[in-house]
Design a protein around this nucleic acid. Sequence first.
DNA 1: AACCAGGACAACCGCGTCCCC
DNA 2: AGGGGACGCGGTTGTCCTGGT
Length: 332
Amino acid sequence: MRKPEASGKNNVNNSNKFRKGLWSPEEDDKLMNYMLNNGQGCWSDVARNAGLQRCGKSCRLRWINYLRPDLKRGAFSPQEEEMIIHLHSLLGNRWSQIAARLPGRTDNEIKNFWNSTIKKRLKNLQSSNASPNTSDSSSEPSKDVMGGLMSTMQEQGIFSMNMDPSLSSSSSLATSMKAMILNTMMDPLLPMLDYDHGLNMYGGASGYESITAPPCMAQVGVLNSGDHGFYGEGIFEGINVEIPPLESVSCMEENAKTQNIQENNTDKYSYSSPVNSLYHKNCNITSNNKTDNIAADQMGNLWHGSEELKVGEWDLEELMKDVSAFPFLDFQ
DNA sequence: AACCAGGACAACCGCGTCCCC
DNA sequence: AGGGGACGCGGTTGTCCTGGT
């Protein structure tokens, strides 16, 4: 823990009377006592009523990131690391969404962890895999490059993949999902993947935000908070996979409790079974158009053999609970 | 022992969204 | 409808710590 006094910037900004910089133990006590006694209200009122010379924003940040009683302090466990990597592969830099699924952890904490530890790890990976061929700035990575990266990631324990051997080379879905995972994990380290430049906001009423992957890859989109319906949407070979909002997680948990999801989770090398355990009844797959029949059929087989490609919502929470069931990931 | 570089983490900043008037 | 304040989020910066030289 840093000593606030030593920062040299523990001063009051005269221009707006608000104190900035590190928090002193006394300030922490004031805020903690106030919050415990009065609960959360308007943050500017909290700052004023607690007798703090801080702006409300600063108080909010201090409470959320440091003082909250339910915070889990200390290093991330390997399980948490794996979860973060996995969630990031699904959600991208939506730290608050990731934090919401990691009890006791804050978005700031996860963001810092990602930017320091995990990015560094991936960077090392990249350099260890660097070859003249990989420097090509083409938007489509070669299969060799991807295969090499995947292998190295597996070797180094970033994650491992369990795939049905019969699908490992031929399934376009498998390729898309591998690409999606790689794409999000390597961002922004692999210019060839051009993940950042693919970001694109649709704005407007829908608030739809899309992360556009290179042509060969999947697309993942996430709705902004406050929107209704589904949380996000991934397009696997022309098939939309919609992710429900976190708010519906509890509801989905209830659904999961009433179902025997274990029955679908018996064979790691089975392509359909683990997926079923993840998405089971709540999956929501929407075919982009009628011409997607081949891919749709593929997905139909994956998702409980659904004939109509709209079979509920993506059970992200179940996915979090049992990441090992993910067809390509084995966080063990 | 002193210095330096890199890592870790706390905090700030700017912007978008929401909500109330 | 739209203006303004509050809030929340993601990116960035600042500061201290630690290990290497």
